[in-house]
Design a protein around this nucleic acid. Structure first.
Length: 294
DNA sequence: GGAATCATGTGAT
DNA sequence: ATCACATGATTCC
């Protein structure tokens, strides 16, 4: 069976109502990034997209829970630095910590994770059955991969990139058996993008398949609260290898469960969004989207 | 200030 | 062995 046959695109189920808005958001972010010096106004952007400013405003609010202006601010370097928690006044810092302690513990408490043993990692997925399916998401078409131990992979495809996206994921565990099973993946797709629905009673189950080093990095990503960010060197410190920030970057980049393991909250020391496996635009979109949730 | 350069750990080939 | 990196600090203009 060929790869294209394994991925049946016609059977994707619409789960997130805001899924179709991402294309608009993506184009806006790209315009802003392309000539950030000229600071194109909302009117100009709407014009270039062939939409009215009010239409665009509506789309944004629906997608981000955030006005366009607030969203645009959330995408700037300035805001990224704030996420790192370096520029807070002491007073604000305290209230910020308090305010975040709820959602901040979210990942800790509501995502249970287990790691594959080193032996299983070396087997490169041998003996493992991975069920997968594409579903719409707030960040474009999402590829969900699960094992009987929980969510193993979450990836994103740009238009027409569905096969490439699947291939990217599948070659991480080349010896696994892959079965398309949208009925099995749909419940995960429905929950993943609604973190407020994760609960201690019914936590989101994820399984980390990677090397020992990668798993240590990914586990520390899980501890970053919503609305905060850390640097690659912060993570290196945390796992006790302070000179390994670059290796950390590589490991973060190989995170197979993007969004749930919040690798988009890892930034360069300057606050710059240095890279993202599924495209920098998507990283900006996620940070902006999350700014509307906290 | 910004470009060039270096030290650096991990994982794939 | 060698190479490519989602880094970061230092050293030059």
């Amino acid at each position: 069976m060929t790869l294209a046959q394994q991925i049946d695109l016609s059977r994707t189920t619409d789960i997130t109502p805001s899924g179709s808005d991402y294309e608009t958001v993506r184009q806006v972010i790209e315009m802003l990034t392309l000539d950030y010096q000229r600071q194109p106004s909302l009117e100009m952007i709407a014009d270039r997209l062939g939409q009215s400013p009010t239409q665009l405003q509506k789309t944004f609010t629906r997608w981000a829970g955030l006005s366009p202006k607030a969203f645009l601010q959330a995408v700037t370097l300035d805001h990224a630095k704030r996420l790192l928690g370096r520029e807070e006044l002491p007073l604000l810092e305290t209230s910020l910590e308090l305010g975040l302690s709820g959602p901040g513990r979210l990942h800790d408490l509501f995502v249970t994770h287990e790691a594959m043993s080193p032996g299983e990692w070396k087997a490169r997925g041998a003996g493992l059955t991975i069920r997968h399916g594409y579903h719409p998401s707030p960040f474009g078409l999402a590829l969900v991969m699960i094992t009987d131990r929980g969510l193993a992979g979450l990836a994103f495809a740009d238009d027409g990139g569905e096969v490439a996206c699947f291939d990217d994921m599948a070659k991480r565990w080349p010896n696994a058996d892959y079965v398309e099973d949208l009925d099995a993946t749909a419940p995960f797709a429905a929950r993943v993008f609604h973190p407020e629905r994760w609960s201690a009673e019914e936590p989101l189950r994820v399984v980390l398949i990677g090397s020992d080093f990668q798993i240590r990095v990914w586990e520390s990503l899980l501890e970053i609260p919503l609305g905060r960010a850390v640097t690659y060197s912060d993570i290196a410190q945390k796992i006790g290898q302070p000179t390994a920030s670059r290796a950390v970057g590589a490991a973060v980049g190989r995170n197979p469960i993007s969004f749930v393991v919040p690798c988009h909250r890892a930034l360069g020391k300057s606050g710059a969004l240095t890279g993202y496996h599924w495209g920098l635009t998507r990283k900006r979109a996620m940070l902006g989207w999350e700014a509307g949730k906290g």
